[in-house]
Design a protein around this nucleic acid. Structure first.
Length: 478
DNA sequence: GCATGATCATGC
DNA sequence: GCATGATCATGC
């Protein structure tokens, strides 16, 4: 077994007590691979490839820690380099539309519910003790090659105290929100949608694992602090291509002091308040300069301007994985439209597993989308929401899909969809009349915008939709 | 007025 | 050229 291999002594290569030197040493990997980094004679490459197979991210992290840095930190609450106070982390990147994105969230330390409940405040939290300084190695993920051949693109020391102050405040607020639930004995109710950048993600070998929690609450799933994939993506892009990232994202909140007094969410909702009850015409007079009223994006652009941004990508929303949805209500209170999601690839859906338990299984994209938070911006029409109808802004609120609904009805819709695609039978795709929450409908540029079914036939692209009736209920509940 | 199918405007 | 969010068109 690999574990019987000796951990090489790398003390000649770098100083384990110095954050700077740990970073310098890590940077040698940039633009290179573990296999080819000069001087890396200590990795018994040929042997490891056969022993580990080299295809999982675990093996990259394992090789990095053991044969590049020569450490064997084990499962402790102290950082991997205790004297330097540095935690070593590696994370996979994926190429998405020409630029790199985090393939997944960055999982940090596991949460001990009983201990974390007793922590005095954020400054003494287990999160900060372990992750105040992270030596981050980001590599390009590729199933077709061995882990030692993954190209490394980023090697950077992330010092919590040097993150933008605004990020620090939001992460602290996230930690407080998570820990409040833990202290209240509600660890079993934690959800990733609760928080913005720092989340409590599930971390279990099996779905049946559970842990004791504080305040006598029921046993709860084990969870770990993690940075959301959206947060990692923006952070990584800011490191890799700062000029591009700068152009692409626009921050809603510029002054971090704002977040000392209230949450990011309250600040955003507050920005809508002076427009609530105003007609779209009135709002347009103030903010609508240059907007095309006929654009299908018009109400979303107006909403972004009420938030105070012009660009499509709001930095905080991207980091927190929040999607904004605009809704027009008819005179009778029914949303004018069902709510669409991005078109899926037929074959992708067939490979998804609802309760994925390891890396080889893919969580349904629709499930992931619905676990994120939404900002609903609601306009009320007098009659049928035609263009000449009188419309006014009535509501803006953050929303997440209730877990029970997700795991029951939504799961059924997804499951029917998967079965229909497997059978290459689009007639069996779940219709709106079959389920009170969601359905599947075409979503392409036109009917000729197609994707390939398992039997090789082309069909108009489809996507999941949330039913207008369900959206109506959710708006009424808020 | 709703269910279903189809398409548009934008931005990259 | 394409993905995306949103809306339009049709028929019952």
């Amino acid at each position: 077994m690999v574990v019987s291999d000796k951990i090489p002594d790398m003390s000649e290569q770098y100083d384990q007590t110095s954050p700077k030197d740990i970073e310098r040493y890590g940077r040698r990997l940039r633009g290179n691979t573990l296999r080819l980094t000069p001087g890396m004679k200590a990795i018994p490459v040929e042997r490891l490839e056969t022993l580990i197979g080299g295809h999982t991210k675990a093996s990259f992290g394992y090789l990095l820690e053991r044969y590049y840095y020569g450490i064997n930190p084990g499962n402790v609450s102290a950082p991997d380099f205790p004297k330097a106070g540095v935690e070593l982390k590696s994370t996979p990147l994926k190429l998405s539309r020409g630029s790199y994105a985090a393939k997944e969230r960055l999982v940090l330390n596991i949460i001990n519910y009983k201990k974390e409940a007793k922590v005095a405040d954020f400054t003494t939290s287990s999160f900060l003790k372990k992750n105040a300084r992270i030596m981050l190695i980001a590599y390009e993920h590729g199933l077709e090659r061995a882990a030692v051949d993954n190209p490394v693109h980023i090697a950077q020391l992330l010092d919590f105290n040097r993150l933008p102050e605004k990020d620090q405040r939001i992460i602290e607020a996230d930690w407080n929100r998570i820990v409040k639930k833990i202290r209240d004995g509600k660890a079993h109710e934690l959800s990733e949608g609760d928080t913005d950048y720092l989340s409590a993600c599930t971390k279990a070998a099996k779905g049946t694992d559970s842990r004791e929690q504080a305040a006598g609450g029921p046993r709860a799933k084990p969870r770990a602090f993690s940075f959301k994939a959206g947060y990692m993506t923006v952070l990584l892009q800011q490191i890799l291509q700062p000029a591009v990232a700068d152009k692409e994202y626009e921050a809603a909140v510029e002054d971090p002091k704002v977040l000392a007094r209230k949450s990011f969410e309250d600040e955003i909702i507050g920005r809508f308040s002076r427009f609530i009850g105003k007609s779209v015409g009135e709002i347009h007079q103030v903010l609508g300069k240059g907007l095309n009223i006929k654009s299908k994006d018009y109400f979303a652009m107006l909403a972004r301007r009420m938030i105070g941004v012009h660009k499509k990508k709001i930095e905080e929303f991207e980091k927190a994985e929040i999607s904004m949805k605009t809704i027009q209500l008819r005179g009778n209170g029914m949303p004018k439209e069902d709510m669409s999601f991005p078109a899926f690839k037929f074959l992708d859906v067939t490979k998804e597993v609802w309760n994925a338990e390891d890396d080889s299984e893919r969580v349904p994209t629709f499930k992931k989308q619905l676990q994120n938070r939404f900002l609903f911006v609601v306009y009320q029409c007098d009659k049928d929401c035609k263009s000449d109808d009188n419309k006014k802004l009535v509501k803006a609120f953050f929303w997440t899909m209730p877990n029970e609904v997700l795991d029951d009805e939504v799961r059924k819709v997804w499951s029917k969809t998967k079965a229909a695609i497997r059978a290459s039978d689009v007639e069996r795709l779940p219709k709106k009349s079959e389920n009170r929450i969601a359905h599947v409908r075409p979503h392409g540029r036109n009917a000729d915008d197609t994707d390939t079914l398992p039997n090789g036939k082309e069909e108009t692209k489809r996507c999941f939709w949330l039913n207008s009736q369900f959206i109506k209920q959710q708006i009424a509940n808020n």
